[in-house]
Each structure stands twice: as structure tokens, then as C-alpha cells.
């Protein structure tokens, strides 16, 4: 089931086109990666989902019907530009933010106690925010985002400011929330975490969506028929037959566990390559090279001029 969808959404600021006919569709219970270079229009789209701003044209649907103002309580948003009241106490502030999302003071308190214990930050309750480190503040902000158990969570660069241990903690929490049925829109420049977390991605560049699809399929689509092979024995790659079929990208021969990085120039399958190789050498490992999201990102954005 589609939890959220935007259809043909456009938005223009004074001199700048922020979004041009962008459509996305987010399946319930999945993590949707919203990618794009700086200034591409991601934040505008996220603000439209949060009803902070409205599209000039196009429509936005939540649970299959047009998004309405009360849906705010079903959305949790961790903006990239985020902060807390510096002079307010951590606990009071978290309670306040929870209540603004529609929780009663009592429920907010109950949830907060649970989260503070889970993140082992109960002693911070009466501290002022300005006494906390940036990472500590981020933890509090994460809690405030998920506190009201929203159906749709939007994380914009959730890992910035975290050390690897806390980043892992947050990753585990995001995955747990997904398993419990939450739908997550995830915007980041960290492509490793996209590969790790996202089921589906959309890439926006210069206000337009230029790529959309399941993460694994997109990476499949960007395959270049390249393979990594480790073998034993001696391989003669200079034969005209071999050179016409394959492009050697790198070839390391050190007698033991030789490595070959090769691209199949024609539409031959991996089977063909294996056949060509097994005649000469003993194959230890054979891997098809699937491009990382990082490579896909750079390739797509560079092409989109």
C-alpha cells in the first residue's frame, strides 16, 4: 500500500524553480531514499510533505487521500537544520515538543522515560540543552522526532554529528522502527547508508526527478558488465580472441591468487567469461561488480547537465 505520494508537484520561489513536476510514491513499511545534490529541491519537497509550505501545482496524498492539516501528528520530521532551545531543560523541552505533536503531557512523559532509559540519557533530564554536546543534542532531537509514534518519519541527514557508535545506534533504531511498520523518508549524502537502509530511492537534481526505483534494481541497471576474478595458474590475455571480447581494466599476476578486473565488451553473459577462463586457469572467486550508490549518484548527476 502506498502511504504517501506526490503527483506532478511544482514549486517556484521568487527567482528559482525549486521543484518541477516531481512525482514520488512511498510504500508503507519501507525506507525511501530521497537523494540529490545540494540545492536540488529535496528540502522543498520535504517541507511540502510537512505542510510547512504548499506546492504551486500538483497534489499530495497521504493514505490515499489528499494530505490534510491533521496529518501533521502522523508525521515525524528531523530537519537538516535543527536545533533546540538552548536555555531550556532537556526534559521540559522534549515534553513540549511531544505535546506540540498532539501527545498528552502524561503520554509524552511515559514515552520519554522509556526512550531516555533506552538511550541511557536519563541523567540529562534536568540539564540545559546548552550544556550538552552536539551529539547529545542530536540524540534528544531524534527522540523528539519519533516520540509520538508517527506513521511517516522523515530524516534529513540523521547521522550528522554522531560518532560511529551512536550512528550505529540510530541506524539500528531506524531499522527497528521500520520493522514495527513505520514508513521512512530518508535524505542523505551518505551513499553507504543509502545502500544499507533504503529499499527505494528517488534522485532529484535541478528541481527534477532524474532517477527513481528500488535500490537494488537501480544498481543492477548501472552495471557495466564488469567482473572481478581471482584465479590460479597462468592466463594469456593477449590473444586477439580475448582482446576483442574483453577489456582488461587491471591485471595483477603475482603467481599466487592472481587478480583480473575485466569488462565484457559485448552482451555476453558471465557464463561466457567463465567458459573462456576455465580452459586456462583455476578460478578461485568470480564476482560481478555492481556499482555503489556513490558511483550511480555521481554518474547520473554529472550526465544531467
Amino acid at each position: 500500500m502506498v502511504l504517501f505520494s506526490a503527483i506532478d508537484v511544482s514549486k517556484t520561489y521568487a527567482s528559482q524553480q525549486a521543484l518541477t513536476n516531481v512525482s514520488i510514491s512511498v510504500e508503507q513499511g519501507t525506507i525511501f531514499g530521497l537523494l540529490g545534490p545540494n540545492g536540488a529541491g529535496k528540502t522543498t519537497l520535504i517541507r511540502i510533505i510537512n505542510q510547512i509550505t504548499a506546492p504551486d501545482s500538483g497534489s499530495v496524498y497521504f493514505e490515499g487521500r489528499p494530505l490534510k492539516s491533521t496529518d501533521i501528528s502522523q508525521i515525524g520530521y528531523l530537519p537538516e537544520e535543527r536545533g533546540l532551545y538552548k536555555k531550556m531543560k532537556v526534559g521540559e523541552q522534549a515534553l513540549y515538543l511531544g505535546q506540540l505533536k498532539g501527545l498528552s503531557r502524561h503520554d509524552a512523559m511515559k514515552e520519554l522515560k522509556m526512550w531516555f532509559e533506552k538511550f541511557e540519557i536519563t541523567p540529562w533530564w534536568d540539564k540545559k540543552v546548552m550544556e550538552l554536546s552536539k551529539g547529545m543534542q542530536q540524540k534528544v532531537q531524534f527522540i523528539c522526532t519519533v516520540l509520538h509514534k508517527p506513521q511517516l518519519l522523515i530524516f534529513d541527514e540523521p547521522f550528522s554529528g554522531f560518532d560511529p557508535i551512536n550512528a550505529d545506534l540510530i541506524t539500528q533504531e531506524i531499522l527497528r522502527l521500520k520493522n514495527e511498520g513505520a514508513t521512512i523518508i530518508f535524505s542523505t549524502h551518505n551513499m553507504e547508508s543509502v545502500e544499507q537502509l533504503c529499499d527505494h530511492i528517488a534522485l532529484i537534481d535541478k528541481s527534477k526527478k532524474i532517477l527513481d526505483g528500488p535500490t537494488t534494481q537501480i544498481r543492477e541497471n548501472f552495471k557495466t558488465n564488469t567482473f572481478d576474478i581471482t584465479y590460479r595458474g597462468s592466463l594469456n590475455v593477449d590473444e586477439a580472441y580475448f582482446a576483442a571480447k574483453y577489456k582488461i581494466l587491471s591485471h595483477e599476476q603475482n603467481g599466487h591468487g592472481n587478480k583480473l578486473h575485466v569488462q565484457n565488451l559485448h552482451d555476453g553473459t558471465s557464463q561466457d567469461l567463465i567458459k573462456d577462463l576455465v580452459n586456462q586457469v583455476e578460478i578461485i572467486s568470480f564476482n560481478e561488480v555492481i556499482p555503489s550508490m556513490n558511483e550511480v549518484f555521481i554518474k547520473v548527476v554529472k550526465q544531467n547537465i
Binding site: I52, Y77, P79, E81, L84, Y85, K86, L97, L100, Q141
Partner: peptide, 9 residues
């Protein structure tokens, strides 16, 4: 302090 975007969501 950048809290405003959190609040107006």
C-alpha cells in the same frame, strides 16, 4: 538555534 523548522512541522 534552528528549532523553528522542528516546531513549524
Amino acid at each position: 538555534s534552528r528549532i523553528v523548522e522542528v516546531i513549524i512541522s
